[in-house]
Design a protein around this nucleic acid. Sequence first.
RNA 1: GCGCCUCUAGCUCAACGGCAGAGCAACGGACUCUUAAUCCGCAGGUUCUGGGUUCGAAUCCCAGGGGGCGCACCA
Length: 542
Amino acid sequence: MRTLPPTGCPAHTGRAGRSRGRRGAAPTLHGVTSTGEEGAVPSAGALEEQRRIRQAKADALRAAGVDPYPSRFDRTATAGELHGRFGDLGPQTETDVSVRVAGRVLLARRMGKLIFLTVQDDSGTVQLFVSRADLGEGPFDAVADLDLGDWVGAEGTVMTTKTGELSVRAATVTLLAKAVRPLPDKWRGLSDTDTRFRQRYVDLIVNEEARQTFRVRHRTIAAFRRQLDDEGYVEVETPVLQTEVGGAAARPFVTHHNALDQQMYLRIALELHLKRLVVGGIERVYEIGRVFRNEGISTRHNPEFTMVEVYRALADFDDMIGVAERMICRAALEATGSYTVAHPERAGASIDLTPPWPRRSIVDLVAEYTGRTVSVHDDVADLRRTCDDLGVSYEAWWGPGRLVYAIFDKRVEEHLGHDRPLFATGYPAEVSPLAKPTPGEPENTDRFELFVGGRELANGYSELNDPVRQRAMFEAEVTAAEHGDDEAQRSVDEDYLRALEYGLPPTGGLGIGIDRVAMLLSGSASIREVILFPTLRPEVVD
RNA sequence: GCGCCUCUAGCUCAACGGCAGAGCAACGGACUCUUAAUCCGCAGGUUCUGGGUUCGAAUCCCAGGGGGCGCACCA
């Protein structure tokens, strides 16, 4: 193992340490804190006191010629690498392997002339063994002067302590960045959810579960990309800012472009642009991107969330069921290593993701869970009575398709996918304006939704590619909007129809809510746990 | 939007009509193998804000604000 030359100056952090514990030594901390004691100014409180003290340490270092925020540090090993390479070293072993590690000081155990620092980097934690005999008095005092939260770099040799703890016996310790705010309680961590989300950086420092959740999210997205790449798809990016939104039923966010003096919207779905690309000949295409829906916030809804939408020429909804299954199964294996995941809401229960997943039509499911036989061919009056019986509310202008779907949505979905994922199929055309009708049955479409743990995770269908029928469906949406459905599309997307008129091949489409998959695979009960910075009310700063 | 719950030191929490407290963090000190180190000492408060009831309010009431959960919304 190579020993690195001592590029760091051993006295680096040592200088300022002399200001502590030595009578009459130059820049004392007290000299800096002696301001702001006026009676007119109320006590700044414990936080201000701690920040003042830490800032004074940084100022004292600077005055002594040491930069408390230096530029770089040559690290040769991470904590994880050290545990991987030296994890089986017996107790009280000294090696001559020299390494340079860096990270944030999480814990400090000061034992007089010996200090143990627990330092955390991206890969884990490792202990620094700091001896006054090794460093000399000044540098040692500087280490004693470090605060929890400071970033440090250390050069030293790999060793284990009497109790077998893998450590780096420090020859030099360098302050890399001074933290002037204190960390939360070192044992209890940070639990206030509002603070955890607003100050996610602190959450990530002190809560391993938070770090793990976002590792799962990253692996999920990476697995989706790999699977689609393996199947020959092209990843693209389409506009977020649009003058006309469509592809989903949702209220959009409205914004304004100054130079064009044009009202614009943030997209609510990826669908219509991706299908334009299939028209253009990109036969297998997908996008992973943020969509925005101006709706309520809940455990399962954030106003901006991430979807992957996938379109494949010459395929139908049945093919897309396979794509969805392969993507989510791969994500489960790569993110968690298992097809068995904890049920998000039922303590102790688990869900088995082993493919293939069962399929049922929504009318079968309605019959099973409500005991009612319904059909899009039923009279509206009969369906309304069924809704009344089941306590499902509806609007006067709804046709049979909306009524059947409402029964399924309100009384059935919550029961689905608790043991295994379930594909529900056979959705009414009235609620599926972009889906291709089932052959010989124009009131229904070749569409599916995937349910896991009572939640909708994915949605897909054989894409409607007949421009005449698509125009009729759009016009029906505009009518619905005029009836007060504020989630229906308000105008006919003429450019999209023009694209269809150039010929969209038979195409299967699929959309998966990535946040919900991340929730499932990370065992998170709230969508806010899987979004780094979820939407919150603005912080009140006083 | 509606209902219920919640807000106390930097963090995690007590006190629930009668002197606002503890642990950790901080600060001063002891300590050369600790593991949330330990020990001694010392400080830190607009009890979310504003009203009200009361001899007396962190505590009870009203209004407002932040947050959580549920409902509604979310093809």
